[in-house]
Every structure is written in structure tokens, then in C-alpha cells.
Simulated scan of single mutants.
Amino acid sequence: MLAKYRRTADGCRPAASVTAASRAAIDVTHAAVGLIDVYLRQGRLKDRPGLPQPPYVPGLEVAGAVRALGDGVTGFRVGEPVFSVSGSGPAGGYASVDVVPAATTVSLEGTDVDPALAVAAIPNAVTAQLALTRVAHFQPGERLLVLGANGGLASVFPGIARLLGAEAVVGTSRTGTTDSDLPYDQVVGDIAALGDQRFDVVVDPVGGRLRSDSLQVMAPMGRMLLVGNGSDDWSHTVSTNDLWIGNLALLGFNVGAYLPGHPEAIAPAAEFALRAAREGLLPLKTQTLPLSEAAEAHRRLEKGGVGGRILLTP
């Protein structure tokens, strides 16, 4: 049995027990477009267990209103505003109606969080909270470095780290700046610009050569979270001897593979992410396109340089 979660006056809590097959139909108002959608369409992740394979409807993250509930699903009502957690189930978000796992659907009722912000930021913020707390074991007073600081996933880490008590949050970007109100202490253009600064945790959604270069700014016992491959470099490797000599760790985290086996993690992570949104710590930039321009959304992501997230509306 999986627990199905919704927000109550006391936060996101289990509202009912449902089977793994239980679903909720959502009238989609916003669907997020991510690099994972691009990789799936390109066939780069073909034959990976649990991931959709062509032919299929793309889209892993949606926000909208409950249209209908499957057998055994309670705790939601028709018309209730909700969003689905990133990587929580089969694709299908690029549509006017999506059917998602009830176990990983979260209510927005009473949160005052806009659905566009919810789908743009909260699923990724859930990923960030889980990665920092359950994988990197981030502690208050530690220092965080985020590579590719303005990317859709990267940009939620500073807000989550702030709530976790980070001493400092620094980012890198190709421009050396951030054009939003993301809560970074500093954003630099490359690793060399960090000088003598050292970091307890490095978040890497970029990969490639930048991954190796970042080892030099990690503190002893530092942990690097591997959460993406925005560089599109699938052959780069890191010297394990460098990890050994430097007392360093590389930790991979794929939320889509993690959540099905750990549904109990969704409630506290979603509550934490919603708190960050309510406190203004997730000020993501968004671009909104009509669903008919989904191909254009993919072209923009493939070209690179998209700060924040692209959303589709039916």
C-alpha cells in the first residue's frame, strides 16, 4: 500500500491508503517542460526501467484541478487545486487532462501558492530537499555551491538550503550573474573565480568537465550531488583517486527512481518546499507557451541558456 498525501491545516499528511495503481485525473492548467523530457524524446534514456518509451505523451510535472478520482482514492475533492511531484509516474502532462498517481499528488488548497509557481518550482524543490537531507545529509552552518545556478533544477537549491540553515550559498553560471531574486550570496562565472572558498556540498546538474573542476573547491569530507547532465556530456569520467586523496564523495540522486520506493518521503519534502515558496525563497522565472508550441519549448532547452522554467498551457 502507498500513502496518498494532501495538505491539511497541520501540513502535508497521509489522507488515505490507496493501492499503487490508484490514479487521479487532473484538468491541466500548467505543464512544466524539463531536460528530462528532451532526453526521453531523443531516446537517450531508452530501455531504462520505469521510464516512458515511444510512443507516449511527454510531461512529468503538472498543476491543475482534480477532475476525477480513481477507486480507493479519498481525501481529495473534485475541483481541488493540486500538482504532481516530479518524476512521480508515467508521462502525459502535455495534455488538457492528465492521469497521475494519487500517491504522489499534493494539494495546493489553502496554500496561496500560484499553480504556475507550484509546477515550476515545487516538484524540483521536493527533489532538492530530498537530495540535500537524505543523500548529502546537509547540516546547518555548511556551505553550498550550485553549478549552473540559473537552471530550472539548480535554482531551487538556494531557497531550500537557506531553510536548512546554510552558512553561505554560492552559484556558478556562464554569465557570472543571476537575473532573478534567487537567494544566492554570490554568483561567479567559473570555478577559478571562487579563489580560496571551499564548500561542504556541491550541487551538480551540469556534468562534464565542470564536474571534475569543482573537486578543487570542495572541503574535506565534501559531498557532490549529481542531479543532472545539462552539459550533454555522457562520456566524461572523474578520477576516483582524486576522491580518495581529497576525502570526497560523489552521490547520484534520481528522484524518479527514488520516490516509488519511498512514498513516505513526499509529505515532509512537499511541506518544506511549500514553506520555501510561501517565504519567497523560490522566485523562479518562467516562460509560458501554448501547448501547441511544445516543440519550440524543446528547441529552447536544446539551445541552452533558459533561466528558470518553461511552462505549457492548454
Rank of each mutant, 00 (worst) to 15 (best):
G50R: 03
D37T: 06
A63I: 06
R48W: 00
P49L: 05
P49S: 08
P54T: 09
D37M: 07
L35W: 03
G43S: 11
R48S: 08
P49W: 01
V57P: 03
K46Y: 00
I36R: 01
A68C: 08
A63V: 05
V62A: 04
L45D: 04
P55I: 11
V62D: 05
D37L: 06
V66F: 04
A65E: 14
L60T: 09
D47C: 01
G50H: 02
D47S: 12
L45M: 10
R41T: 12
L51Y: 06
D37C: 08
P55G: 12
R41E: 15
L51I: 08
D47M: 04
R67L: 15
L60N: 11
D37A: 06
L69T: 13
R41I: 07
L60P: 01
R44E: 12
L45V: 05
A63Q: 05
R48A: 09
I36Q: 01
R48C: 07
V66P: 11
L45G: 06
P55N: 11
A63M: 07
Y39Q: 05
P54K: 12
Y39P: 01
P54N: 09
L51G: 10
L69P: 10
V66S: 11
V66I: 15
Q42A: 14
P58T: 08
R44K: 15
V66R: 09
L45Y: 03
L60H: 12
G43A: 10
Q53C: 09
G59F: 00
G59W: 00
P58G: 09
L60A: 13
L35I: 10
P49D: 08
Q53V: 09
R41N: 13
L40C: 04
G64H: 04
I36D: 00
L40S: 02
A68K: 10
P55R: 10
V62Q: 04
G59L: 02
A68N: 13
G59Q: 04
G59I: 00
R44W: 07
A65R: 15
R67E: 15
L51V: 10
G34Q: 09
L51H: 06
G64D: 08
G43P: 08
R48F: 04
P52E: 11
Q42M: 12
D37H: 04
L69A: 14
G59V: 01
V66E: 11
P58I: 06
V66N: 11
E61F: 00
P49M: 04
R41Q: 15
V38K: 07
A65N: 14
R41P: 03
V57W: 01
E61R: 02
G59Y: 00
Y56I: 12
P54I: 05
P54H: 11
L60I: 06
G34W: 00
V66Y: 03
Q42W: 02
